[in-house]
Write a protein that binds this DNA or RNA. Structure first.
Lengths: 205, 205, 205, 205
DNA sequence: TATGAATGAGTTTTCATTCAT
DNA sequence: AATGAATGAAAACTCATTCAT
């Protein structure tokens, strides 16, 4: 969560930037870009409102910086799919990694969900066509395995969509999941079992 | 989309309520509750701002009324799962119905997505435990089929989550889906094929 | 000071617009565009701040509307120079008219002075090249008279500048004029005598 | 432009004060007292904002110091009117000197214009009645010449106003002058010819 | 001297809501 | 039923100034 490209940044500055981004994650993930206020962010970061704007020029900039900062981490698991690994294991490992992110970083998941729901204006600006290239690479690996008969043939991009949607569902729609399951259950743990089975059946050649 | 509990409502009143709800769907689905403004809704409905508030006392009330109005339609497909039908066909039919809703009613899908992302404060109020009961019934049907060996055994509630998440993904995350697939493709059509295969493999006993 | 091009405007709306423009003239002429606050304008107009913005969308818009509203009146005297009149009388009449405007409308004079000092960003937008054409016409008339030997030959545009600067000086630099002359004198009355003599001597062929 | 009353000031201090005053002239002349920001001044001076305030305690003080610093230079030409010189030559020389200041120091001219437009609060404080005395002296010289029949009789103070207004017009209202004359002309050069002629005709006895 | 950091007091603007008719 | 007019409360920013080092 630290920015290292601009070297001249003091300890305290770095710390405050992180406090702000942390508060912003809290606010934006709960209320969306428009619904969050700089006041919330400032309070959550323990700073004054103008001080927040001293570090980031505007609310939009905080939002953009937050997305930028988190994007890499968000996309990392997919880039770790190993073309030389065992196909099914690799897919299951990717699914598990995404599911763990819903567990460990639900706010990040919701942040991206909000952004994409609105048409992803900031993400598009940040990513350019970058997302597509990343997905294309992973899809290529998957397609290769299918061509080799090591994985049952399905559309690799829709396979990826399915992993995204099902794993993130546990974070983004947590309120609903809890309402349906009732108390005393571990949605993500159960989801792991369900999804493991699902992808084994779907992809075993 | 009409409200029938208060009988004395003129034709024109009814029409204006519908216009407002229509405009509200447009605004709320695109920008969320906080991001949408009454001005947008009024403009989209072709009415004046105070007139909008004459029909519904506040922005929150419009939102609540909209959710209420759409909820039944939103949950209808699940209630149409027929215990006496063919298990796999029933599940696939349900999945298809949900997928078609992403195609035909993407704004409704995003409206609910926004609401649940925020913790579903209004929905909880409206539904009480209603959602749970509805899901419990469907889950009971599914479980029965599994117990009879007519469907491969999986957790029925997580099965339902998977259908929700994957089908709604095409509406809620449309921006991302389009960015990944590029132009000239029909995401939902392709998704139908993918999901049909997925659930056949998952659920065939 | 009333706007007649948009007919559907109620009595009260018209009155409030005028109140606002009046308050804006007060504030802008004294403090300039940046120095004046909407609060000042609102107080001076006896309205609430948001109500001021209900009539004009922003501070800039008020300023622009004010300049637009006053521009015609401001340029009127020059357009009344009569090609068929007596040359010297016409020039003197124009000078007198401008001088009277410094007497009767000093705030308007200062408003334009502020705007032009800043490089006339709004005026340029409003006028386009309009000012030049208006001056060209008057300069043409003056030049004609000079060519006929009815007026001593001088550069007509600089003649116009001299009239502008000297007459407006009594409004724009009033503080200095008063400081130099001391109390108990009538600067504009004396200025009239001085300028009358000046232009007679300058222009009598 | 240097301040000599406080003797212990290092070379570097002196240089920074000058840098600040230079930046302040830039900012204040373009935007007025309220419109200019310390940030602008600091950036223009190449110093940090708090450092600017280390040299001058407040924005107002910078402004006051700037006016004070420039005032002497601004009034110098009038004090150089030589009672023993040739009357017409002296007046023309003064007018030319003022006109050259519009050419060489337009920002200084605009700075004073802004200040006087606002009612000259700072100048009054600085000058006390000083301006009046200076003008009184010059007016006395002029009046003497008129009494001797060496200059046509006019009100000497209004004569001075006329010189001020017409010469400064080329700096203060430059935007307008350029808009009227169009490109490719030298306003001040032409103005010199015009004003030379004007004052010869006005003042030749 | 010098400055990065911080902030209180504005200032513009937005917006849900109310008022008067 | 309907709306032009109005506003309080908030929200995003700005900026002169101060603090700590």
């Amino acid at each position: 969560m630290t920015e290292t490209s601009e070297p001249q940044m003091s300890r305290i500055q770095q710390k405050n930037r992180d406090l702000i981004l942390h508060g912003a994650l809290e606010a934006f993930s709960a209320n969306g870009l428009r619904g969050a206020t700089i006041d919330q962010i400032a309070r959550s970061a323990g700073l004054s409102k103008p001080n927040v704007l001293y570090y980031f020029g505007s609310k939009d900039e905080i939002h953009k910086a937050l997305l930028t900062t988190l994007l890499e981490m968000w996309l990392a698991p997919m880039q770790q799919i190993d073309p030389d690994g065992d196909p099914l294991s690799e897919v299951l490992r990717y699914m598990r990694a995404k599911l763990m992110m819903s567990q460990d970083y639900p706010r990040e998941s919701r942040l991206f969900a909000h952004e994409i729901l609105q048409g992803a204006p900031h993400l598009t600006e940040i990513l350019g066509g970058g997302l597509r290239e990343i997905v294309d690479r992973a899809a290529g690996v998957l397609q290769g395995w299918m061509d080799q008969g090591r994985l049952a043939p399905v559309d690799p991009r829709h396979l990826i969509f399915s992993i995204w949607s099902m794993t993130q569902h546990y974070a983004d729609f947590e309120a609903q999941v809890r309402a349906v399951l009732g108390p005393g259950r571990d949605p993500i743990d159960e989801g792991g079992v369900f999804l493991d089975n699902l992808y084994r059946k779907l992809l075993t050649p």
